[in-house]
Design a protein around this nucleic acid. Structure first.
Lengths: 206, 206
DNA sequence: AATTACATACATTTGTGTATGTATGTTTTA
DNA sequence: TAAAACATACATACACAAATGTATGTAATT
């Protein structure tokens, strides 16, 4: 039972657990209320604590909590991509990359990234807090800055353009899912993925 | 001079002019503050009127104003697409379509669509107000529902998948521009457009 | 004279930052 | 190894800002 566990947990572990709870509550709130309605009050209500707890663990307030949440979500996304990469067929690098990328962008959680990322555009405090996370993502997703990625997608101008096309299409589909009435997939996603793979194979066969 | 013009305008025209001013102010606010910071107070300050004027012309308040703004912006986007279509080379239907589509999605104003559209996801009142506008757009952009569009992009499963790929990539790039620090284009957009056209021609040559 | 087109004023709500209180845990010291 | 001393982890309370809806006032049109 959690009550006794909490007793025996020690304050460091308790602290980490509370941070995780607050981040999970923030994810929840972002998922079903969006950034605009994700307030400190709402998050704390979901986490079952008062704002005192939030300000204790995140003295900088909501922006810091959003940054931590985005960091967590991006970590999970990266982990999913890596897991998908393990199951991918290494004989078709580009097809494999498309699968791994869609494992990231196609996941419902990506809505969180979109919400927070878009909101940061007009909120200087949030933008500052998010900057390191965004920069980390940018480096990971830019072939010119990521040798491993470049090895997969190629280094030519055409290769990079194709890589960008893949990425932008996936972001577009992720946005479409985020604004869909119920967050359900839109139906044509699979067909687009298949088409991208066909194009990739045609390009490889050239 | 506007002062005397306003005198001789008649109340119907004045009313229309004020609505237009409020909508323009809303566009401005959405462009440089985003949805979250676009409030009735802010819009009215930009328009140089009090909230009394807003509530007079839009008794339902901000949601109605957002709907009217989105409607206006979508109209302008459609007009730009039509204008671009006139200059397009009719010999390459798909290439032409890509140009006209990018004339719409590549325009800075598309940020407004994204902001409002995404916000509507979590605001029932706004969603209700926006529903007709969104439905209109959906019908216009779905080949299965729009014969003219289907004639351009084709009716086969593959054709529609390629059409979706184009659309999603453009939406992705539009989102990227919307979240960019200064709303500037991202650099790879042109290359992606060119690549899409090449793919289109390769498909046509099959 | 009646309606339209606004402005003004007020009450209410909602969120935020901060200051202070208190219980629980942890370390230090006797 | 108690017990005192301190730190941590929250909750409570208050002052304040900003936005909203509405009600009422007033000048200009028709």
């Amino acid at each position: 039972m959690p009550a006794t566990q909490e007793k025996t947990l020690g304050q460091a572990a308790r602290s980490a657990a509370m941070r995780a709870r607050l981040i999970a509550a923030t994810k929840q709130s972002l998922m079903d209320s969006g950034y605009g309605r994700t307030t400190a009050v709402d998050v704390c209500a979901r986490a079952g604590v008062t704002r005192g707890a939030l300000f204790h663990h995140f003295p900088a307030g909501l922006p810091a909590l959003f940054a931590a949440t985005l960091n967590t979500v991006c970590g999970e996304i990266g982990a999913r991509a890596q897991a998908a990469a393990r199951h991918a067929d290494p004989r078709h690098a580009m097809s494999a990359y498309i699968d791994t990328a869609w494992a990231s962008f196609g996941h419902p959680d990506f809505k969180i990234v979109i919400e927070v990322w878009l909101a940061a555009r007009n909120d200087p405090a949030l933008r500052d807090a998010l900057d390191p996370v965004i920069e980390r993502f940018r480096r990971a997703a830019t072939p010119e800055l990521n040798a491993g990625l470049a090895a997969k997608v190629g280094r030519g101008t055409q290769d990079i353009a194709f890589y960008r096309l893949i990425l932008e299409a996936m972001i577009g589909m992720a946005l479409g899912r985020a604004v869909a009435a119920d967050g359900k997939p839109m139906g044509h996603e699979k067909a687009v993925i298949v088409l991208l793979k066909e194009i990739a194979q045609a390009r490889a066969a050239r």
